[in-house]
Lab assay of single mutants.
Amino acid sequence: MAAAAAAGAGPEMVRGQVFDVGPRYTNLSYIGEGAYGMVCSAYDNVNKVRVAIKKISPFEHQTYCQRTLREIKILLRFRHENIIGINDIIRAPTIEQMKDVYIVQDLMETDLYKLLKTQHLSNDHICYFLYQILRGLKYIHSANVLHRDLKPSNLLLNTTCDLKICDFGLARVADPDHDHTGFLTEYVATRWYRAPEIMLNSKGYTKSIDIWSVGCILAEMLSNRPIFPGKHYLDQLNHILGILGSPSQEDLNCIINLKARNYLLSLPHKNKVPWNRLFPNADSKALDLLDKMLTFNPHKRIEVEQALAHPYLEQYYDPSDEPIAEAPFKFDMELDDLPKEKLKELIFEETARFQPGYRS
């Protein structure tokens, strides 16, 4: 834990890192770190609560700039109880001085990944967590956004079992017609939660990839272990087919990539493993919904509104309290091709509203 900075004593240090967030945020305490930044909790002297502050230093890398800009653009436009918001952003007053960006968010005690390492969940908890994931996802999908990296560590939890989806750095506007060349190379989302079509096709992607990830998360809540822990690309596919069985001819016809289709045709026939054999203690309604989410063919996979209306979630289902976005989200430009200098300018502009004396 960093010592509390005395008023006016300059930035606090946390594990050798400068955290320049005073005077409003003090009493910093280390939480963890990701690929390009550290997260601390801090005391907000204005709202009198502890908050989470993520320090991001992305400006050396085009990919990190892209992810940072995506996350900020999306989260500043989203407003939903099951999606983490941005409360404040701290950065230098000029673009030349801006080396880091500090993002202030609600402090959540833990995440689903940490929880599943230590606790076996009751059916009631599984049901409530799944409902909140789908409630947040309904809003995301209504904005025409794909999260693309749903996994237990991106689901934040607090002691009252509130759940918030975080990390929109890989999110995209849904565009089933656009052929994202190089899709697989830039697709760094965790393999275990990846839909089979991501490994088999490169053309376009749809909201059904997020539903697949939610199915993987439900299976993990039922058993405290990942359902498809593939060691590499082909191993991942083999794990999936080992449980779902061989795809039907109709399902194979959806695979545009001939090499991928021929690979699947070359494999020995596998039978589907019954879900109640894998999860003998699970609620039968939970397994019915799991089956509809972990469907090989993305066109037959359940959609988020149908999933919310499934009998497993009937005690929570309330369409009048499951809000959607006001308007579909649009990125003005494809960020993939922009140089990091341009992305830095866009991050600077996007964060201006939090600067003292800002006038829109």
Rank of each mutant, 00 (worst) to 15 (best):
A2K: 00
A4G: 09
V14H: 04
V14R: 07
R15C: 06
R15A: 05
Q17P: 02
D20L: 10
D20F: 08
N27C: 09
I31R: 05
I31A: 00
E33L: 05
G34S: 02
G34Y: 01
G34I: 07
Y36F: 15
G37H: 06
S41P: 07
A42V: 11
A42F: 03
N47K: 15
N47G: 12
K48S: 08
R50L: 09
A52S: 14
S57K: 15
P58F: 15
F59D: 06
F59K: 14
E60R: 15
Q62C: 09
C65Y: 15
C65M: 10
R67L: 07
T68D: 15
L75V: 07
R79I: 13
N87E: 04
N87M: 09
A92F: 00
E96K: 13
Y102T: 08
I103T: 01
Q105K: 15
Q105W: 15
K114G: 12
L115N: 00
H125P: 00
I126A: 02
C127L: 10
L130S: 07
Q132I: 10
Y139Q: 08
Y139M: 06
L150M: 14
K151C: 07
S153P: 02
S153D: 02
T160E: 06
C161D: 01
L163S: 08
I165A: 02
F168R: 12
R172D: 07
D177Y: 13
H178Y: 11
D179R: 10
E186A: 09
V188Q: 05
R194Y: 05
I198V: 12
G204H: 11
T206F: 07
I217Y: 08
A219E: 14
E220H: 10
M221K: 14
M221L: 15
L222R: 11
L222D: 08
N224L: 07
H232F: 01
H239Y: 10
I240W: 02
L241N: 11
G242Q: 08
I243E: 08
D251M: 00
K259F: 08
Y263A: 05
Y263R: 06
S266G: 14
H269G: 07
K272M: 02
K272G: 06
W275H: 10
R277D: 12
P280K: 04
N281M: 05
D283S: 05
A286R: 04
L289R: 07
N297D: 10
R301L: 10
R301E: 13
E303R: 10
E305T: 10
E305L: 11
A307E: 00
P311T: 14
Y317W: 00
P319R: 12
S320E: 04
A325D: 05
D332P: 05
E334R: 00
L335K: 10
D336T: 10
D337T: 06
P339A: 11
E341S: 11
E341T: 11
E345R: 06
F348Q: 07
R353D: 01
P356R: 10
P356G: 06
Y358S: 12
S360P: 13
S360K: 07
